Amino acid sequence: MISTFLTSFNIFSPSEISAFEEKTALRSIKKGEFLIQEGQFCKEVAFLKSGILRSFFSPESGEEITYCITFPNTLTTAYSSFITGAPTVENIQAVSSAELVVVQKADLDLLSQSSLNWTRFLKMIAEQQYLELEKRLFSFQKEKAKKRYMDLLENQPVYVQQIPLQYLASYLGITPRHLSRLRREVTL
């Protein structure tokens, strides 16, 4: 699965992908467990093979704000901590049991020294992350909650049903009550 993901970038040789796979480890986390918690240092990237993860933070009010939901076949990390080496301000938690392929930052750094393709790959991932962030920001400023919900349903119909109402509502920037109304409207 990770090899298919890496092959999709059309920059790696089979030996580069093998070298990467040798540096990975499989990890399972149960529903409710954390990949990383606020205050920890992020030193790894995970490829989500199965399950759903949510990234959230807690402002001073204590309320949890879900700002990212990660679905299978994508990478996840506490990105700012991963880049800066500072403690993370976010939490990444399993919404359902999850299977991950994990690689350490130190190993990615070694791979980058061995081939410019890894540097190109990391640049492409950073660009994708930026575009996703921009798309989400514009979505919040330009679209109504119903459109955001419909887009999510269209792109992840099976998984959306597995996300607890309060997490999904927070992700969409609405109250659970508003989300319940939207769900009723959509099923009519």
Rank of each mutant, 00 (worst) to 15 (best):
I125S: 01
K144L: 08
I174D: 01
W118Q: 02
V103I: 15
L137G: 06
T119H: 01
Q129L: 11
S112Y: 02
V186S: 08
R148H: 08
L100E: 04
Q113G: 09
S97D: 15
I174R: 08
L168Y: 00
L179I: 05
S114L: 11
K135N: 13
L133S: 13
F140L: 12
P87K: 04
K142P: 00
S96W: 08
V103N: 03
A106N: 10
V158N: 12
L172F: 11
T175Y: 05
K142Q: 10
K144C: 03
A86D: 14
V89W: 05
Y171E: 02
L111V: 10
Y171N: 06
G173W: 06
L110W: 03
M124S: 11
W118T: 04
F121A: 00
S96A: 12
R184K: 14
V102P: 02
N155F: 13
A126R: 06
E134V: 15
R177W: 05
Y171S: 06
E134G: 08
Y159R: 03
K147S: 09
V158W: 09
T175C: 08
S115W: 08
V158R: 15
E127M: 14
R136S: 12
P176V: 07
E90V: 13
S112A: 15
L137C: 07
N91G: 08
S114A: 11
I163Y: 05
Q128N: 13
T119F: 01
K147M: 09
T119K: 06
A86W: 08
E185Y: 14
Y149M: 04
M124I: 13
I163W: 05
L172E: 01
N155K: 12
M124R: 15
E127L: 15
E154C: 10
K123A: 14
Q129T: 03
Q129G: 01
R120Y: 09
V95E: 05
P87Y: 03
R184E: 15
T175D: 05
L111K: 04
I174V: 15
D109K: 14
E154V: 10
I163L: 05
L153P: 00
K146A: 13
I174T: 04
N117F: 06
L153T: 07
Q162D: 07
S139Y: 09
Q104M: 11
Y167G: 00
V160H: 02
Y167C: 04
V103S: 05
Y159W: 13
Q129D: 01
R181Q: 06
F140I: 07
Q141L: 14
L100I: 08
Q156R: 15
T88P: 02
N117R: 14
A86V: 03
N155Y: 11
L137K: 15
S170V: 07
A126E: 07
H178T: 12
D109H: 10
T88Q: 04
E134K: 13
A145M: 09
Y171G: 01
K105M: 09
D109R: 13
R136P: 02
Q166Y: 14
K105P: 03
V160E: 02
A106L: 12
Q162T: 04
F121M: 04
K142D: 00
